[in-house]
Amino acid sequence: MKAWFAQHRAAMGSALRRLWATPLNTLLSLLVIAIALTLPAFGYVLLDNLRDMGGDPSGTQQMSLFMEVDASRKDVGEIESRLRQAASGKWRFVSKEEALKRLKSSEDMAEIVDSLPRNPLPDAFVVELTRTDPEALEVLRKEIAGWPKVAHVQLDSAWIKRLDAFLKLARLALWMLAGIFGAGLVAVTFNTIRLQVMAQAAEIELARIIGATDAFIRRPFYYFGALQGGLGGLVAAGLVFGGMALLAAPVADLAALYGTQYALRAPGAGEVIALAGMGALLGWLGAQLSVSLSLRKFD
């Protein structure tokens, strides 16, 4: 057990020394890996932020419930109690009188409203929904539309649906991008390790003859691939943070034009670790493929 740990420590040490021994090569490889990881990672962060915006509760998931014009107070009370039961969020009752008063207060409308023989507006509820997924909202809308004396239920969900569809598409595109760049990372590691195996042919051949196991010979390369990939992941995280810092001011300006405040949410520690872990895993995979192929000629 002790020997096993010592051998792993030695393999890791040798991998670090190899990374350190050729700083320029290492730097270039890290950059290539980092760039390959940065694009999907940055896309992920942006999508994540877009989804946050979609889930923003300020007035986006509103449902307007219009009663029949001849609905009585009692009918309104019934709907109120049903809404309470459904517990689907906060709601506000807008009586027909209130609605008319509001309409009157807007410019140009006062005269028209005054000329009406009677109030044409219905009682209404404005419901702010807690749920956001379009399918569930549609189910809720249909249910409420079936309640007594409800004339019309309008779900302001078209754009949520569109955003959702866009996010789905973007997520798919992101996965494809990640797949392609992930393969690129594996290829880069594959090539680096292949060159290393060639450069160390003498050592590998000798080690075999004097009793090294396959695991002993492969181990430093695995560590090298994983370390290189993991470090590349960290550099990629740095690039993502840098990109977000550059985007912060324009995003704030854009939000200000829409009269809101918005700040991009930066990736957390868990996401950085996941990125480094992904890099390490892909690097290890590249090393594994490369060593398996390159070592065949020593048999």
């Binding site: 002790k2 020997a3 096993w4 003498a202 000798l206 080690a207 009793g211 090294a212």
Partner: peptide, 24 residues
């Protein structure tokens, strides 16, 4: 001889012991 020219005499002799997993 098959000596490794990228390391010292001592490190050349150490190789079989590293393979055997001896403490440094």
């Amino acid at each position: 001889q098959k000596l490794l020219f990228d390391r010292s005499a001592l490190d050349n002799v150490l190789l079989p012991l590293q393979i055997a997993g001896l403490p440094r």
